[in-house]
């Protein structure tokens, strides 16, 4: 028999409850930012259209980084893209999640010895879910999203917190690979 007596919850508990409610909404309405960094973006249209219809899960594409929740890094990242990707990631409003597509984001994949392509994405931005494959087919893409939803439910999708806590580490890695994160405008200066 539950007690009907009112017992005040501590502030942490209230916060936790609110966070859980927020998590319910967040995992049922993931807005993606499709940054077509590489070739895996080609399997997203089948996932979005009638074959798999991502909108059933509440996912949809969004126009700008500020509006989006999930950053889809679809494939290999050249240095030039990584600069822009870091800009994009930092513009997104929190809580934010990153899904890395393809082998290239995990260990460099087929471009592991290329002079222009980075090998490990999670050294530069925190990644919550990896979808392996070159290229991952649509089923695994959808499966990756469902994994992300599970992670959010279990409070394990904490990449964005990690980016705050270990910001120096990430920044040092970015600097080591890029030299300079700032983008200079080629046609203006």
């Amino acid at each position: 028999m539950l007690s009907t007596k009112f017992s005040p919850m501590s502030k942490e508990e209230v916060d936790r409850k609110w966070w859980e409610i927020g998590d319910f909404f967040r995992r049922n309405s993931l807005w993606m930012l499709m940054y077509c960094t590489g070739c895996c973006a080609i399997e997203l249209p089948p996932a979005m259209t009638s074959a798999y219809d991502m909108e059933r899960l509440g996912m949809g594409p969004m126009a700008t980084p500020r509006q989006a929740d999930v950053l889809l890094v679809t494939g290999y990242l050249s240095l030039k893209t990584l600069r822009r990707l870091i800009y994009t990631y930092e513009q997104m409003s929190e809580p934010k999640y990153v899904v890395g597509f393809g082998s290239c984001t995990i260990n460099g994949g087929i471009y592991h010895d290329s002079h222009a392509v980075i090998n490990q994405l999670n050294k530069y931005v925190p990644v919550d879910v990896f979808v392996a494959g070159c290229m991952p087919n649509t089923e695994s893409v959808m499966n990756g999203f469902i994994d992300l939803m599970d992670l959010i439910k279990n409070k394990k999708a904490n990449g964005w917190k990690d980016y705050h806590e270990r910001n120096d580490w990430y920044k040092a890695n970015q600097k080591a690979a890029l030299g300079e994160v700032k983008i200079h405008d080629e046609f203006h200066e």
């Binding site: 995990i106 460099g108 592991h112 090998n119 490990q120």
Partner: peptide, 10 residues
């Protein structure tokens, strides 16, 4: 060589 120098490998 360039890749080993600049990017960490898994």
């Amino acid at each position: 060589q360039y890749s080993d120098k600049k990017f960490s490998h898994m």
